[in-house]
Each structure stands twice: as C-alpha cells, then as structure tokens.
Amino acid sequence: MSGHVSPKSLYYSIFGALMVLTAITVFAAYVNLGAMNAPIALAIATFKATLVVLFFMHVRYSSRLTKLVVVTSLFFLAILLGEMMMDYASRGMGVVLPTLQ
C-alpha cells in the first residue's frame, strides 16, 4: 500500500554520487578536451538526471505506465529537437539531388 520504501543508505549514496559527478563536471570544464567538452558535460548531466529519475523519483520501482510516460516525454522531446536540428544542420547545404524533370 505504501509503495516501495528505499533504504536511507541508498538515498545518501545517490546524493554522494551526484556531488562527485558535479565536481567532475566542474573539473572537466577546466580541462581542454577540444570538441569533447560539451558532450562530456552533457553526458555527465544526463547520467545525473538518470540517477535522480530512477532513485529519487522512484521510477525504478514504478509501474510500467509511469515508465511509459517518461519514455513518451523523451520521445516527443527528441522529435522537437531532432526535426528542428535537421533544418538548421542542412541550411548550408546546396541542392545536389538531380531534378527529376
């Protein structure tokens, strides 16, 4: 009835992991990794977000429907970002397809 009760230690270790990851993010920003700086920062942020969603927000122990909602939000976010990116990424490209007529 009262849902899944996680042990306190789990919450503390997730907190610890998030703090460590934050430190790594800041540290990594001061290292010149060339084009990789931004992807690394975003990858760490995504990992942190995943921890929050799975454990603090209990998605790991939630119903399939809750998981479906999470996936749906990411799916439509991907549509939004992806299709707009498609336009901007191809703006500079000239027309190379042969005209059919």
Partner: peptide, 10 residues
C-alpha cells in the same frame, strides 16, 4: 549548470 556556467572555462 554546465550549459550556462561552464561553456568554455579552460
């Protein structure tokens, strides 16, 4: 945080 504060710090 990383997007706004850490664009290019090196």
């Amino acid at each position: 945080f990383p997007l706004l504060y850490l664009v290019e710090r090196h």
